[in-house]
Design a protein around this nucleic acid. Sequence first.
DNA 1: CTAGGGTTAG
Length: 684
Amino acid sequence: MHLPVFLDDPRRLRRLLSSSSSAAAARTLARLHALLIVSSSATHTLISSLAAAYARAGDLAAAESTLTATAAASSSIAAWNAIIAAHSRRGSPASALRVFRALPPAARPDSTTFTLALSACARIGDIRGGESVRDRAFDAGYKDDVFVCSSLLHLYARWGAMCDAVKVFDRMPRRDRVTWSTMVAGFVSAGLPLEAIQMYRRMREDGVKGDEVVMIGVIQACTAARNVRMGASVHGHLLRHGMRMDVVTATSLVDMYAKNGLLDVACRVFGLMVHRNDVSWSAMISGFAQNGQSDEALRLFRNMQASGIQPDSGALVSALLACSNIGFLKLGRSVHGFILRRFEFSCILGTAAIDMYSKCGSLASAQMLFNMISDRDLILWNAMIACCGAHGRGQDALTLFQEMNETGMRPDHATFASLLSALSHSGLVEEGKLWFDRMVNDFKITPAEKHYVCLVDLLARSGLVEEAGDLLTSMKAEPTVAIWVALLSGCLNNKKLELGESIADSILELQPDDVGVLALVSNLYAATKKWDKVRQVRKLMKDSGSKKMPGCSYIEICGTRHTFVMEDQSHPQREEIVSKVAKLDLEMRKMGYIPRTEFVYHDLEEEVKEQQLSYHSERLAIAFGLLNTGPGTRLVIIKNLRVCGDCHDAIKYISKITDREIVVRDAKRFHHFKDGACSCRDYW
DNA sequence: CTAGGGTTAG
């Protein structure tokens, strides 16, 4: 048989075996393989090079069988490493581990093998498995190997076991930048940004130069520690040292600036990026959405698609968040549709969508979506329970909570916060008390401030003010403003004025700057006719009230969103809206409505104050809704600030007069008005 | 043939 000459030319053979990795290469290798066998010139070295070449070319099955079929199997660890590495690159750490574990007993794994195996364990989160790899590696004499130790470090750091990571780290005789960057990233993901920054400092003291990857960790640490100064100096450091500003680095800078409120800087960095991918867009979109600039976020979302980049789940989540901020139900629905066509509904997307429906006032859609997702995680359950609560369905929230327990899912502090709040808003006092107790005693969850607020609120609303007061004394920590406020509003509603007054004093001592809180305090003093104190509080209100951003309300009609602010004279239907407001005012007064001018914090004539109340953005939005929808249509209004006590009263009258169901979501919670009542009861 | 990196939910 005629053999190609190159079988006798080792140089050429080696070149062929290390050539590029493509399907064509794999076919060439198969031919070569056949020739080697036919010509019986297959040495162990050649076979293992061939196997490695198969692995590089992507034919892992061929690589493996080539090796296992021969005696070369036990002597060629490099070829096995190539196979394991190829599995890892392909994104199947489990296969990598399978090959590692099935290595022939005589094969001696080296540093590379152990490093690959540990990295595979880190990806799937198998700490136990990783530790047995570690034992073998240490036995084989790799105790001080930087690669082995760094990957072990990563295994711990990645899964939150920072104590173990630190132990490994402290024992390492030599550390390189990868070691340090693993520690930095580990502390960041463990929620310990200050420790991460500390690590970076130690690295510099050690004389190790950071690269992009370390700096990304440091940038993230600055983001989490809300340290823009340092973040900006890291940014400067990158530029000065001519480090590669790749997509990932630039994206983390965008995120750092955006999360710290410097949206303009974030935009500039984003604008300077030569190459942007889906994640960079997501970071920018979420930056806007989380800073209350939802319209801008959605504009960017459209730009992203227009520039040909398919939104990933991050961008979709942020778009949904923006929709829920401004109550843009129609766009939220279309995002939902987009997800259905192109993605699986992951829990994270599902949670965002459920939250969007909840905040846009569509309980039914939220429930439908929730029922469609069968693989539910804790956060998804929590979101749905919170949704029921927000919509005044305390009993449904409880049923859901019990259903959740039956599936074996363990509720956490957030679950109980949602549950207790739901029970409180539905007036389910006994259930609330019961589940607070069970939370503490059965579920061993230490109550946090929010849980106390819910329980105090629950008790105080139903007039059990004394019992709520006892709860406060039983608390270990001093009551906070929020807790006092819950108790105080209960006192006011249940005419427990004496107790109320002492609570009002306690609140003032804590120097709150929330106008809503001060309004409540002022109302209490007014009820006890302490006029000098009323004046004192009203002055505080005026001081803090002047700083607040303008109130703004949204209403969506037939898929179009309309925005209202008090000062805006430009609305095309302004005249009509104003006369509708005036007409309603007249009817309301006939039914007993008295304007509560104490909610106007400017020094104005009484009459002007009354007019200001009528022009609050939510009243304008409601009037617009009444003008543009048929009778019986439910109105959903989203307000960026709190609905004041006066508007709250007014809307009750409006819902009765017009026989409409009106839902107002404000910065605090939902208010459902129907037949002149509000299910979010007893607002002050 | 080997280790470390960005966004997103209650």
